[in-house]
Design a protein around this nucleic acid. Structure first.
Lengths: 143, 143
DNA sequence: TCTTAAATATGATTAATATCATGTTTTTAG
DNA sequence: CTAAAAACATGATATTAATCATATTTAAGA
């Protein structure tokens, strides 16, 4: 479904959403273990997300990664698309180039409604939404 | 979602379901192009499915792969599980070991209903079901 | 029984992902 | 202005998935 990279990135972003803000940045080495992702690996992914303005970062002493209220407005799907690309999540389940609603392949036809629903949810939910769910202990982030 | 291997296998099985039976076998070289999958690659996959009795095969002259009525009772999910393994399709979307209905991760909670629905469909639909849809031109199998 | 034609079994190669490592740039504070 | 600390940029390595190749086994028909 998602690549390891996307999974790692999502875990990291949600962790940062809960534990950081403009005045409380976190260095990679201080949370990579907490989310059970190799330091160098998650660093690379977060650098990409920072470049794309999904999260924030500051170099130098007292620097680190952090997430602002504005960052929190970005959706889960945006993160997935930056890391995995649009194709991975939306392409035909049989890998057929010409599969579409008008001329669906057998699997497309079968799972299209639930699949569309899933994609719509990932597109509508923001980092903030999920962070709130975590804060209310409605959901969890075990390692 | 699915590996290339699963996609290829499903395409091949459906193609065979439409074009073969006990008395009309097909050799790999006669359909690998039709489904746009490398010959040696699909051969290997089908050998595995034949070993697991999802499809049928006969060696020697006039041999080939074919699908019996009995083969057609197998589900789509069985094929996916043989090729990709159960884990790929059913594991947590964040890759969390301890994620489950009782203690769901944020993504799990979000997409669980649609995801379960998808899995249920793949488990309930048989090769025969999809082959019939194809025969009735309700769905298509472009290359 | 011999030849030929097919799948089968096995393994080699290639390509894509995942992972790790490190020198460069920026920023802070003394 | 300098030293240290952080992300940043880049690329190297390792692992896994995809693809290709081939010798072996089995079956059909002459």
């Amino acid at each position: 479904m998602l690549s390891n990279s996307s999974k790692y990135a999502l875990k990291a972003v949600l962790y940062l959403a809960l534990h950081t803000d403009e005045n409380n940045k976190m260095m990679v080495k201080d949370f990579s273990e907490r989310i059970n992702v190799p330091k160098a690996y998650i660093a690379k992914l977060l650098q990409e997300l920072a470049k794309r303005k999904i999260i924030s970062s500051a170099k130098g002493p007292y620097g680190g990664f952090y997430i602002t209220e504005s960052n929190k407005k970005h959706t889960i799907m945006e993160i997935i698309e930056i890391i995995d690309g649009k194709k991975r999540i939306e392409s035909c389940m049989l890998g057929l180039e010409d599969c579409n609603e008008k001329k669906p392949c057998p699997i497309h036809s079968l799972i299209s409604p639930s699949r569309s629903k899933m994609i719509a949810l990932l597109k509508s939910k923001t980092i903030d939404d999920l962070a709130k769910d975590l804060e209310l202990n409605k959901v969890f982030l075990p390692v």
